[in-house]
């Protein structure tokens, strides 16, 4: 009976409303906290009545607001990617950070920096897209080719193997072309460098990626009943998987190119969302986006407070939050059941 109440429409709407409110409030706090604390009312002023002459308004408009917005978008994208991956593979451990996405992006970036040093910013973004995509495809291939199929443990190990391989080759290239410093800077990542330009990239990719994700949400729900059932219901599973991979590529590519490595966020959010929202991906996908945005905005605030005035990489913080959850999943029946 609990589940009926839990998954009722009112309950779901209440969750969504409170998540939206929490998100807006935490973005407000994210803008207010910093080297110079700014009052929340000033934040509001700067957005509604922007005044060029005030330094605090400048700081908000040019530094803090783009950062907070980028955190929300990146968090949303990673969570939706994770939800789509888990839905399509029916694999509880599928998520961007486990599949070597960041390593792939770093690999592609270092190649671009080494051989095309004059490449523009947008070319770099595109490169990291391509690299992230290659890594995902490689991990999927290794997992799928293996005898026992794409089990959670195979996926995780394939991610480790491909990730280590790509990282090693990356560090050799970086060493040879003396790019370690630039690469290290990018890898530490975080959201400090997010400006409006980065947000533009995020918004465009997000619009496309989220649109496709929402479009295929219903089909993913059906796919979860089993591939045969879905095919029997007249669903084109191949097309669905292509669209799903495309979504994941666009969303994680954009997220990684802006924020670097953000560990485990894409893994845990979909699980939490499913727990609250049930199994319908038409709910899971948008709510994952909200929760992901909320978690990353909060983590970003923590990353600035924990060792102020220095920043702690936000990816390390999401990892520390996410790992206990990963361990819980690994102990669960789906994670450890079969090989």
């Amino acid at each position: 009976m609990l589940s009926t109440i839990q998954h009722s429409r009112i309950f779901k709407t209440a969750i969504i409303m409170s998540a939206i409110i929490a998100l807006v409030v935490s973005i407000g706090f994210s803008v207010a906290f910093g080297a110079a604390d700014i009052h929340l009312s000033t934040v509001w002023e700067a957005i509604v009545h922007f005044n060029e002459d005030l330094t605090s308004h400048q700081v908000i408009q040019e530094l803090r607001l783009p950062r907070a917005v980028a955190a929300a978008l990146v968090g949303a994208f990673l969570a939706v990617s994770g939800a789509v991956m888990q839905g399509m593979t029916r694999n509880p451990l599928a998520s961007p950070s486990i599949m070597g996405v960041t390593h792939g992006a770093a690999f592609a970036l270092v190649i671009t920096m080494a051989f095309f040093p004059a490449a523009s910013n947008s070319a770099m973004t595109f490169t990291s897209f391509a690299g992230a995509g290659t890594a995902v495809v490689l991990v999927f291939m290794v997992g799928s080719f293996s005898k026992s199929g794409l089990t959670p443990v195979k996926l995780a190990l394939a991610g480790v193997a491909i990730g280590t391989l790509l990282t090693s080759v990356t560090s050799v290239i970086a060493l040879y072309f003396q790019l370690e410093k630039q690469l290290g800077f990018w890898k530490a990542g975080g959201l400090a460098g997010a400006d409006w330009q980065a947000n533009k990239v995020l918004l465009i990719s997000g619009a496309i990626g989220l649109f496709i994700a929402l479009m295929i949400a219903k089909s993913i729900t059906v796919l979860n009943l089993g591939e045969d059932v879905a095919a029997g219901l007249g669903q084109n599973n191949v097309l669905l998987k292509i669209l799903g991979i495309l979504t994941v590529l666009i969303l994680t590519g954009a997220a990684v190119s802006v924020a670097g490595s953000i560990g485990f966020l894409g893994l845990i959010i979909p699980h939490i969302t499913r727990f609250m929202m049930g199994t319908d991906y038409r709910w899971i996908i948008p709510v994952s986006a909200l929760f992901g945005a909320l978690l990353l905005v909060l983590s970003d605030i923590v990353s600035r407070l924990i060792n102020a005035p220095f920043e702690t990489p936000v990816g390390a913080i999401t990892s520390l939050i996410g790992i206990p959850f990963f361990l819980y999943l690994a102990r669960g029946k789906n994670g450890g059941g079969q090989s």
């Binding site: 451990l93 443990v153 995780a156 190990l157 480790v160 990963f326 690994a330 102990r331 450890g336």
Partner: peptide, 11 residues
């Protein structure tokens, strides 16, 4: 054994 490897990756 499987759980061992997965937990190892997490740790």
């Amino acid at each position: 054994p499987i759980r061992l490897v997965l937990v190892g990756i997490g740790i």
